[in-house]
Every structure is written in structure tokens, then in C-alpha cells.
Design a protein around this nucleic acid. Sequence first.
RNA 1: GCGGGCGUAGCUCAGGUGGUUAGAGCGCCAGAUUGUGGCUCUGGAGGCCGUGGGUUCAAGACCCAUCGCUCGCCCCA
Length: 416
Amino acid sequence: MLLVRGTHDLIHKSAQVHRYITEYARTWAHKYGFTDVSTPILEYEGIFSRSLGETSDIIRKEMFVLEQKGDDPHKESIILRPEGTAPIMRALFMNGLHQTLPQKFFYEGPMFRYDRPQKGRQRQFHQFGIELLGIKSSWAEIDVISLSFDILKGLGISNLTLEINTLGDKESREAYKSALVDYFQDVKECLSLESQERLLKNPLRILDSKSAQDRKLIEDAPVYRNYLNTFSENYFETLLKNLNHLDIPFKINPHLVRGLDYYSHTVFEITTPDLGTQSTLLAGGRYDSLSTLMGNSTDIPAVGWAAGIERLALLLEDKLSLPNPRQFALIPLSEEQDREAFSWTQKLRQEGLIVHFVSDGKIAQKFKAAAKLGAQYGLVLGDEESKTKTFTLKNFETGDQQQISQNALSTTLKSL
RNA sequence: GCGGGCGUAGCUCAGGUGGUUAGAGCGCCAGAUUGUGGCUCUGGAGGCCGUGGGUUCAAGACCCAUCGCUCGCCCCA
């Protein structure tokens, strides 16, 4: 038996933790007024290649392409979605929602990237994220960043850093790009091979390089802040001032560039030192030009972020105490009691109790199974109980037993 | 895609320089206990030693390849 590389089963505790994280995030998103949206896992490749940029690693080497069966009317490849933002933008247009802005969406689900697996990095992983569409001011950023902290802190994650930077608008970016190219062109031979390639395709990404030789050169490279036009500069300043005013701590990281093409102005990440090399828990920013990249005639203001559920789970799995509701096991002692016991089981389930029905094996095996299934209490129904219209209620933790009348069954159980 | 470490029972791991039928603890199953799980005792099942090839009289161990996990690089959530 083989497990597809980079995938995992979620069983018992890991499934519960995963679900708990998602539900917790959803609850907060609802308080902020975001509503659920769910888009297909399958999309045409163009949705992503147009929006993420042909030079991004996700497009160049990490896509899961499906084998075409022949009945699809389009020749374009179908892929497993690698991220959530582009599909939501697609859905916005296809459902005509861009005419009724603003829109606020929360999503959650599996994403797929053909990457080399590592701790905190799977080929099938799960994200939840939010998209706030149609708000121009930087209060949109404030709103979504606040939401992200409410979720992460509420989950009990500490040791968080908000790193933030601005990519400016198109005009600023073009000005900065040409300054960067001028600077690096002169020292091209000293750059790593990867960065030499970036110089041609996506010079901003050189700033993100971790190679030691690049880092030295990057230190002396032109600083973006000096190339921002007035609008971009003011936009960023206002955002930072408001973050300060709200006591949201942040760290400006001028090297935070992001791999995806659709960002403009604000980019941010929330990182933790507790996960080794996969330190980003949540990342996002503003992507006003995504809508035009996807074919719309005008920009639609948009901010959002996505968080990696597996990474949060790694931080939480050991310390999260999940709710542990009462569970009962109905134990008929012989086959004569099976039917009666099962209808009692159903009755109690309808009353809202969690009830296991245990009928396999010998009596000792039934008790063993009941305890293993997680029941804290056993309800024994044998000949004597049947005659006297009672159950024997056994507390598995203390071993105590008592007789309770069938009439008072559900009220007794609920009062435990 | 690149570099390092590691693959032995369901789990955690022992198995010096190659030497008969591969071990422990936990877990699992059964019995002691025919109306009672956990504790105890007794017994039992469970391994192509990741996979394929090579060296050797002889390989879990050595060599090569491959797959997987893992740490780092890269990238990102």
C-alpha cells in the first residue's frame, strides 16, 4: 500500500485539531462580517498563470495537471488549485458580484503544490483565508490584519511577528525596478545564478534571496522607500500610523517581496520562530490589479490573506485541549436484549446524547470495547434490568455502578 | 530541483568489527474471571529488517541504485 507523496491522513486527534482550527477561524470571520464561499478544487490553468505570473514558482514547477479525458470542450489544462485567491476573483466575475461591491469572503479547503515535502510543507495542504473586495482605504488592511490576530491569538499561538512592506503602485514599482536593474547590472557577475535569472524576469525577487553572496549586494541596493511616489508613500504611512495607534506591533521588512505578481501596495506575513524553516503562518496583502490581470477593464480594490492549517496544527497539536463531551455505551448482555437496547440507543441519540451501541463478543469484550470507544459511562441491559425496567449505569472512570429506572433514564444521564 | 541524516513488529527503539530459527518495552488477541473494561499473572499472534541489484561460503549489517521520511537550501501557507 502506498500513500501519495506529500499527502497525509487526518485521523482522530489530528482531524479534530484541523477541524477545530478551521471552525475557530470561521467563527471569527463571521464576527467580522465575512461569509462562506466555496469554489471548485479543479480550475483551468489560465486562472492561475494569468494572475500569479508566469515567472512564479507555483506556475513554473508546482502545478498538478490532470490528464484530459477528451470530453472537455476547452483545450486548456485542468489543474488542482494551488491557492485560493484567483478562483475567488474568477467566481466574483462569473457570478456578477463585482457589480455589488464590497464583498467579504471566507474560504477553507485543500490546495495542491508539487513541491518537495518537508515539515510544514505538504503537496496537499489546507488553507483558510479571507478576501475583502471593494475597499480602497488602508482600513481594509487594518481590518483583515486585526482578524488574523484575533484568530491566531485566540487559538493560543504566541511568539508572532507581523512583517509588513509596501510594493507601491505600478508607477512606483516601475521606477524602482529600473533603479534596481541599473544597480544589479553592474555587479551581475557577483550575483547567484538564480538571482541573475531574476534580474531578467522579476528583479524585485532578488531582494528575497537568502544566498550569502547576494545578501551583501542587497544591503547596498537602492531602497524602495526612496522611489515611492507621493500616493504610495502616503498610503503606507497612513497604514503604519493606524497600526501604531491600534497597538498592533509590526516590523517593516523591506525585503518582503512575495512571489506572486498580483500584489500591490501592502504585503504582510505573520511568522513564528517555532516552526524551523517554514516560518510563515499566514500571508497576504493588497492586490488591486488582480482583476485587470484576469481580464477586467478596471482594477477592483482587494485585500486578503491565507493561513496554512497544517502549520497552525503543528503549533497546537500538543497543547490544544479539545472539548470532550460525555459519551455513553449501551451494552446489552445477551442477544435477547439487542433489539430493546438498540431502540434505547436511538431514543437517547434523539435526546442529543452521544451513544455507542456495543453488541459484539462476550460480555467482557463488550465492556472493553465500550471503554475503548471513549465512553465514560456504560448502560447495561441484561435479564434483571429488563425485568425491573432499569439500567445498570457504570462509571468507567471510578468503576461505580448504580441502578436507574428506565423512566428517568434521559434526565439522569443529562444531569451527569 | 540541490545537499545532509535516517528507514528493523501497529508504536518507540535494541541488534560492537558480516556467522544458525531477528529481540525488548508499549499496544493488540486469548485465558485466569460463563453479568463487567482498566490493575495483576499466564500464554499467543504479529517482521520479504523500505524495495531492487551486487560483494561473500554466509548480509538486518558492507557496496550501488531506487523509493519514502526527515533537516537544511529553494519556494511558500
